[in-house]
């Protein structure tokens, strides 16, 4: 094991915040598996659907009237870039799910445009996930997932589904768009869980 002497070798102060295999960028690259959906705010709706089929829905006005957080977080894309200190405004999943009765352990996030991704429910709770609708003090633009996207910064960013339409609470795990195509089911950047065999 190599020993690194602090102050010798130019080790950057923020390296400790960079997961293995990642490099830092100050850009915000746009990755997309399809055309960008354009959803008018008057037709936008967010739904939470439980395992019994019970639906809770929010219009844009109802959603943006909910108490919001302003998290500043590092994000890590599975294509190896990380971006530090991104500033968002969004509604905590703790708020959205506060009155939802469920025994579910898993969630599938569904997007306008057909994308989906799966996560354990516990990863969306305790202040670790939001439905974000502003980035850097501005409304979230469509190429980055606007009107609203999931924000789960402790997992690779493909889990932070753009153009969020619904959260389906499930008793069983149902792999999503990239998870069925060879990517890791959980996607922890600190354990470098990129592909299913990792």
């Amino acid at each position: 094991m190599a020993l690194i002497t602090p102050g010798f070798g130019g080790r950057r102060r923020d390296d400790a915040n960079l997961p293995p295999g990642q490099y830092r960028t100050d850009d915000f690259p746009v990755l997309s598996a399809g055309p960008t959906p354009r959803i008018g705010l008057d037709e936008w709706e967010l739904a939470v659907i439980t395992e019994t089929g019970e639906r809770s829905t929010w219009s844009w006005a109802e959603f943006t009237a909910l108490p919001a957080d302003e998290p500043t977080v590092d994000i890590h894309c599975v294509t190896h870039w990380s971006k530090f200190g991104t500033r968002w405004r969004g509604v905590s999943l703790d708020t959205l799910l506060a009155d939802v009765e469920t025994a579910a352990e898993y969630v599938v996030a569904h997007s306008y445009g057909g994308y989906s991704t799966n996560l354990p429910l516990e990863d969306l709770l305790d202040g670790r996930a939001w439905v974000a609708y502003e980035f850097d003090g501005e409304p979230l633009v469509p190429v980055h997932g606007g009107p609203a996207r999931l924000l789960v910064p402790h997992l690779y960013f493909w889990k932070s589904a753009k153009w969020l339409r619904a959260l389906e609470l499930r008793l069983d795990d149902e792999p999503g768009f990239w998870e069925t195509a060879g990517y890791h089911n959980y996607g922890d950047p600190w354990r470098e869980q990129r592909y299913r065999a990792d």
Binding site: P29, L31, S32, G34, V78, W178, G182
Partner: peptide
């Protein structure tokens, strides 16, 4: 083919 993504996606 959408190639700015974690894989190649042909539609």
């Amino acid at each position: 083919v959408f190639d700015r993504a974690p894989g190649l996606v042909a539609r």
